[in-house]
Amino acid sequence: MTMENIYDRAITLGEYVPEPDDDRIICRCEEITKGEIRRAVHDGMYTITEIRRYLRTGMGLCQGQTCAKLVKSIVARELEVSPAVLEPATSRSPMRPIEMKIFAQEAKEVGDNV
């Protein structure tokens, strides 16, 4: 199975059925619940990138380190595909959050402090 299966956004997922643990927080940084993620899938957000832009999952300080796999498995289950099918969100610099004043301070003579 590949991403192909979810390219056509007209496929129907059936009715959204609430689940008892829908209010469980999945993305701790942005406080996004399982139910919100499931609903987003039903709203048409089929890729991890779309979910993230729609809900902010994985956009917090931990940059998705904790929740990436969890979100993926919830989305995959909702779409009835294997989690491996879903491309994870793109990785972007900085790999760890960095203060503006430090990022702004590029060492003049590079390598001096090494």
């Binding site: 956009m59 917090g60 300080l61 940059q63 793109t90 972007r92 610099s93 900085p94 959050p97 960095i98 203060e99 503006m100 004043k101 990022f103 702004a104 301070q105 590029e106």
Partner: peptide, 26 residues
């Protein structure tokens, strides 16, 4: 080199943001 440059630009106008953490660039 771009994000550091943007940071320097911002800090000149809004000094208070110097300690704000950049989470992501794109």
């Amino acid at each position: 080199i771009t994000a550091p440059c943007i940071c320097r630009g911002i800090m000149k106008y809004i000094p208070k943001l110097a300690d704000a953490k950049i989470v992501r660039t794109w």
